[in-house]
Design a binder for these strands. Structure first.
Ligand code: MN
Ligand code: MN
Ligand code: MN
Ligand code: MN
Lengths: 218, 218
DNA sequence: TCTAATTTTTAGTTTTGTCTAAAAAAATAT
DNA sequence: ATATTTTTTTAGACAAAACTAAAAATTAGA
């Protein structure tokens, strides 16, 4: 049985592996707000448990076993987030912290019943795909808003870093997943985007555009 | 913020205080499957935190603060149990172990929303009263089946020790909370009860009768 | 290429929560 | 009333998961 801490490390490894290819000790430490020396200790333990391929001073990568274990925790996290939003009417900006705890509850049956109760959702409240029981996960074909040029269109399908403050801001501006976006203008000076969403013109800073994920038809 | 372990100790103290008046170190140890020396350590910590009145070698009792903290965990436990039975269709014999974990999730808002989602239930699946937010809890007026004499009647409102094997057995015999019971005969030899429930005659061992709680009209 | 800076690992410490074994106190029995 | 048994506490050890400081390896710069 893996500890809470081990499970959080596994998720971190998985997420970091998505973005960068080889995962460094310091990147894990930064992600988890820990010191690199603590990470090294855990990496040794993970090597023992065959969760990672590890050689001193080289980076790490998850083994098949490690990846599957990580995906099962991510599955729980995203199902709980969905429960909190769909059934308990939490805002999408509130659920991550709570799911961070709920994901560690040990019970296969619980998660299968929860999945059922929620009608086997495909995506979590942030647009992220929910892995299925066997570890399969949809690869999404998304672009960042910042990659679009003037007059291009897309549909918002996710947020990259779902920080509460960003989610909150999107709520305030009534922007949600599924909304269509058209780029009206891109300011040369600071990369600000003027976009049209639901027939309203909105202004997004470059930083926001680096965090909005869209599905485009190209 | 109290640890998972501390929370389990507090609940143990609360439950033991219900049955016996002064709680001994060894009874806590037995209840939690720990060694008395470990309990002593925690009692010292609890004295520091003002959760208990503690004097070396004398027993312990919860302070107001300790009791309120215990009740808030019991509230969470019983609400989660209700959720698991009512919404996820778990059996009443399966939910205790899972709620033992869920009760430690930290979020005031979560538990209030859960309470709401469940329509503010008064009792958990085992018939135990759910404390309200402010720590108020209904005192139930119940008798054990073993206290009834021949021809007396009652309604099943709870189980004393809700061991899975007992709950399971009651399921098998189609006995549930709310059922009316009439004592037909008590065998002198071993204290076995012959009772009538839903027009069926059932035979309960003395041990079972020591665990069935009834509401009677006396 | 060789030195300097950065990253990673090692060594040793801390806290929490458990344990065993031994000492001390309290309860029980003769 | 005293001796024996039982309960409780103390003392010391251990594992997990974090830390700091120092050493070692790698990477980058001149
Ligand atoms: Mn977590
Ligand atoms: Mn999410
Ligand atoms: Mn618990
Ligand atoms: Mn219960």
């Amino acid at each position: 049985m893996n500890s809470q801490s081990e499970e959080d490390y596994l998720k971190a490894l998985y997420h970091l592996e998505m973005d960068f290819d080889a995962v460094s000790t310091s990147s894990i430490a930064e992600y988890l707000n820990m010191k690199p020396s603590s990470v090294t200790d855990m990496l040794k333990k993970f090597a023992e448990k065959k969760f990672i391929n590890y050689q001193k001073y080289k980076g790490t990568s998850l083994t098949k076993k490690g990846k599957l274990t990580a995906l099962s925790i991510i599955r729980k996290h995203r199902l709980w987030e969905t429960f909190l939003v769909e059934k308990l009417s939490f805002g999408w900006d509130q659920v991550h912290i709570i799911a961070e705890q709920l994901e560690h509850i040990k019970s296969e049956e619980l998660i299968e019943k929860l999945d059922n109760f929620l009608d086997n959702p495909k995506y979590d409240p942030h647009g992220d795909p929910i892995p299925c029981k066997d570890g399969n996960i949809e690869e999404m074909n998304q672009k960042l808003l910042v990659e679009l040029k003037t007059s291009q269109k897309g549909i918002i399908t996710g947020v990259k870093k779902g920080t509460a403050s960003l989610l909150n801001y999107l709520d305030k501006e009534k922007v949600k997943l599924g909304d269509s976006v058209k780029v009206i203008e891109i300011l040369e000076f600071d990369g600000t985007y003027i976009v049209e969403i639901n027939k309203r013109k909105l202004t997004f800073s470059e930083k926001i555009c680096q965090n909005l994920l869209l599905e485009t038809n190209d």
